[in-house]
Design a protein around this nucleic acid. Structure first.
Lengths: 132, 132
DNA sequence: CTCTTTGCAAAGAGTTTGCAGGGTG
DNA sequence: CACCCTGCAAACTCTTTGCAAAGAG
């Protein structure tokens, strides 16, 4: 069997922090965010629990940004905007993403479990900083 | 200044191999593919040149698959299908991707340089292997 | 001849894993 | 009380970097 998951405060805290966060944090971001409240928290625990969540489909990976994997507790189909200047990851509402999985299944003959759509560029704030 | 690029056989070979490849290879895949023909080729050179190509927009990154970054010399907007079982990366033709960048720019107020759309799942071949 | 490119190997960064002890049901 | 979960630290993997030698224009 996989995981006969027991309850755990740390795990709860990690998932909670991920749900509360809107910035699609990385493992280390979660770590430094939880460390004050759980001084004996270990990075390994973060990684281990993230792997569990991923396996159970409770969270998704947004992809690797600047070498660090970023996670999202919102598993509904939605796109992301990744600012290549500040590394911020924003949610993007975009319709017409619903039927794509089915369309791709028909086109490839495979089975689609999900998709990830991300846009790269500079966010509004970073643009403002550069504007003349 | 950036790169006052000179000509280089190795570089030409790397880009050539990437253009010829249809499997969106990683740095190491390119390395083992070119090594026979260029016995004194070094992995560092692969990485260095990939970084140059990326910077110049000659290639794009498909994302990180199983811990390794994968590259594509086809910079036109198109989607990818990543098989989570065999790690294969396939091209997916999908219309209606053209105008998305503009739509996202209007929605976020940022500037979009490009996007990446990838589907995860099992490819047809892997499904066939499992089929009863 | 000058400046770019490369090989090699060491350094870095992020992530994973083993083990002994603590927590949960 | 049995099994899961955690801290700690070492191990791993992929990628980056420094330096001296080789290559291109």
């Amino acid at each position: 069997m996989e995981t006969a998951r027991k309850h755990s405060k740390k795990r709860e805290a990690i998932l909670g922090a991920l749900c509360a966060a809107k910035d699609h944090p990385s493992a280390e971001m979660l770590y430094s965010r939880l460390k004050p409240q759980y001084p004996d928290l270990s990075l390994g625990t973060i990684y281990r629990n993230l792997a569990v969540f991923l396996g159970d489909g409770d969270i998704i990976s947004v992809g690797t940004v600047a070498g660090q994997e970023r996670y999202d507790a919102d598993t509904s189909p939605h796109a992301h905007f990744i600012c290549r200047r500040c590394g911020r990851v924003l949610d993007v509402e975009l319709p017409a993403l619903e039927d794509m999985d089915g369309a791709v299944e028909r086109a490839t003959g495979g089975r689609v479990a999900g998709h990830s759509l991300s846009f790269r560029g500079e966010c509004a704030e970073c643009l403002a900083k550069t504007a003349t």
